[in-house]
């Protein structure tokens, strides 16, 4: 074997900080985990469970009902909107918190974090790559559910124009599809707060459960506060307040003001939380 030759900066041959922890490697490292597979399995199966549930239940839709849940069987698009609305408030939150909260904390609990850092993967780079992959998995989770629901709903209930809750109006499927993409995009952005909080907790605590639970706990507390009407307009600044604003995009006169506010709140919280995560991790003593 040949003796390695180090360069002037003390780099081992072939080592470059910008090449460490490629995204592909991190994706593979995370993908084969049971919790990843289980979560995706659940998200992919849920629409089919819902389809079966709707098939079993008595068909109470008299054609005049205007609730989202009653319109779920009106077609694939309606079904997908319904599936998104029932899962966005909790299931997707858990999925996002899992992918983002687990990512650093689980490495710490496996003790593999110190070997990655000593490889060395620069701390900022490690965090950046992990954040990108975690957000990628979160985005996949948020996207895969409505898409599978769209497929399942279309197979089960047919491809029909979307019927709007409230007025029962019809929006043609071709008009609704771009809106549907917008809705999924908004659902993604609105989960950003959960993602960034989970991420901050992930670099702060060594227990993956603590990070995931902390982020989910925030959503629960925020939802409870949201119900306190005495708080008035202060509630507008709660991170979960605008999470259902995407329903406005599906109305015949789409109103995007709530979604804009939601994006604003989401971006605000996320930017600061993620900045704190980086700041914290940079100087943290890794003792696990």
């Amino acid at each position: 074997m040949t003796a390695p030759v180090a360069n002037a900066q003390g780099f081992a041959p072939g080592y470059a900080p910008s090449k460490t922890l490629p995204l592909r490697v991190e994706i593979v490292r995370q993908f084969r985990r049971r919790r990843t597979l289980a979560m995706f399995g659940l998200l992919l199966a849920l629409p089919w469970v819902l389809v079966v549930a709707f098939q079993f239940g008595p068909n109470t839709n008299n054609g005049n009902s205007v609730r989202l849940s009653d319109l779920a069987t009106a077609g694939g698009l309606n079904f997908a909107a319904f599936a998104l609305s029932v899962s966005a408030s909790f299931l997707l939150v858990v999925a996002v918190a899992l992918f983002c909260g687990d990512t650093v904390a689980s490495e710490a609990s496996w003790s593999s974090l110190r070997y990655l850092l000593a490889a060395p993967i620069p701390r900022d780079r490690l965090l950046r790559q992990k954040l990108i992959v975690a957000l990628g998995y979160s985005a996949a989770a948020v996207t895969v559910l409505p898409l599978m629901a769209l497929a399942a709903g279309t197979l089960a209930f047919g491809w029909h124009d979307i019927r709007v809750p409230g007025t029962g109006e019809i929006i043609s499927a071709t008009d609704a599809l771009p809106k549907f993409a917008l809705v999924i995009g908004y659902a993604l952005v609105s989960q950003l707060v959960v993602a960034s909080l989970a991420f901050l907790l992930s670099v702060s605590v060594d227990s993956p459960l603590g990070a995931v639970g902390g982020a989910v706990g925030l959503v629960i507390v925020s939802s409870i506060l949201q119900a306190v009407e005495a708080l008035g307009s202060v509630r507008e600044f709660l991170p979960t307040f605008w999470n259902t604003a995407w329903l406005d995009a599906l109305s015949p006169q789409p109103d995007y003001s709530g979604m804009i506010k939601g994006v604003s709140i989401s971006v605000t919280y996320s930017a600061i939380l993620i900045a704190f995560a980086f700041r914290r991790f940079r100087r943290k003593d890794v003792v696990s």
Binding site: Q9, F11, P17, R32, R33, R34, R114, A119, P120, P122
Partner: peptide
């Protein structure tokens, strides 16, 4: 310093192994 490139010339095993248990 944390992440110093020269650490690439260092191999280490400190305080027990750290592996991804599912791999």
């Amino acid at each position: 310093v944390p992440g110093a490139p020269v650490l690439s010339r260092l191999g280490s095993f400190v305080e027990g192994p750290g592996f991804l248990p599912h791999l």
